[in-house]
Design a protein around this nucleic acid. Sequence first.
DNA 1: CCAGGTGACTGGTCAGACCAGTTGATTTCC
DNA 2: GGAAATCAACTGGTCTGACCAGTCACCTGG
Lengths: 252, 252
Amino acid sequence: MAAGGVPFQPVRAVRAYERVAEEIENRIVSGVLPPGSRLPGERELVSQFGVGRSTVREALRVLESGGLVRSRPGDPLGVEVLGVSSEGLTRALGRLTRSRVASVGELVQFRMVLDGESNRLAACLRQESDLERMAEQIARMEELSPVGLRAFSEADALFHQAVAEASGNALLGLCARAVHEAVVGVIEQKIAAVSDAGAWMERSVAHHRRVLEAIRAGDGEGAARLGREALFDYYADLVGEGDRQLLKAALG
Amino acid sequence: MAAGGVPFQPVRAVRAYERVAEEIENRIVSGVLPPGSRLPGERELVSQFGVGRSTVREALRVLESGGLVRSRPGDPLGVEVLGVSSEGLTRALGRLTRSRVASVGELVQFRMVLDGESNRLAACLRQESDLERMAEQIARMEELSPVGLRAFSEADALFHQAVAEASGNALLGLCARAVHEAVVGVIEQKIAAVSDAGAWMERSVAHHRRVLEAIRAGDGEGAARLGREALFDYYADLVGEGDRQLLKAALG
DNA sequence: CCAGGTGACTGGTCAGACCAGTTGATTTCC
DNA sequence: GGAAATCAACTGGTCTGACCAGTCACCTGG
């Protein structure tokens, strides 16, 4: 050990735009700048931070790519704060998949794990209000069932969000959503080939009802299994043979 | 439905720097630009893409913030390609936690799920070579045990990587690593307070040995439980009371 | 009272300049 | 001849100032 105690850590050169981005990011994640609020205009930021406009712009690009802000040309109110979302996760997961570091099968398997455990935890920790929200979304799905796929998917997502909230772990839901979006981004074209949307929606409603019952009954293992099975049924035909084996292993 | 079939989707304005970033990102994730290779200098990119230098720089900032490239001033070889890594995931998870969208407890619970399922899958799909690599890392950990915390942690990480590879799902391991790094980033100061590093390392070695045995025996449930328990034991004292309840629920 | 024009903003882009750091070849000194 | 100092040609990082195309508030003429 060097004299004087712990050795010095290497210092990283910090560039001006990083400081600016960090400063703004801190205010966003700490809630000082809530979603919906506006940043000062670029030229105003320039004078506040005492840097050049390109520096400010590079910082804003970084924040924008992380999904924290959105800028629209001509908006006199300035850059809009979006707050923290699953956007960054989605982007990162999508990259991982597109680069074949992770296959579509792994993505789906990952979501099987996520949804399964989410259901399991929800079955342990559910509150009456959670169950109500889930039932509500199932009712909406049934209403929309024969047609209206887009609204149906939305209700589906809200159901899963309710489960995630009941589980007490927002991360599980957020991640599952990000994975879902990444999967959609990768096999978009194949999804369009789903033959009978009406029949699928009907089965989906039945499945969600079973999940709700398991959660209501406090049957964690059953709810987890149902969640995994539903994903397996849906995706088994959309992935390759090798990936299908992965999915089978994840069924448990 | 509008005449002519499906209705038009809203178009999103695509900015020049986005096109540039996308173009480069595609070459990286598709492997045309492998990790370690170099991008042309900024001024060269300017002439190749036919845009201004600030546009190129904004694109590079986006890629850099995603962990795909790294630039060093004065490097005559140009911007270095890093390839796809868990870096982006780490950053996104860290943001989620710092913004209190997700608590530290959720993060740890999330990792309990991840590690547990990773172990379970590894127990199902393990190969002899995987087991060897795991044993190797345990031996290294034992060697380093009383002192050398840094190298110990590295061997630890390599063990988990071996498990992740055995599980057949790189995403689980990548995500667990990202969560781990995010946790470290959030409760760094508390970790330094761990009283007796030597004793901890000893217990850690014993734990890893048990996990390896469970995986070798094909005992998925046991391996999953061990993984979750180890994290619980380590973090239970480092999180608040509310979070501790979460972690208990995740023990299963 | 309302339609349409207009001007003062916004962010997006570009060109050009300078600085500081890195590197490798060149020169200088022993 | 070989090692050390020097220098020139890069690199990326930053700043300035300019222009464009949107957007919106306001004002004016019907």
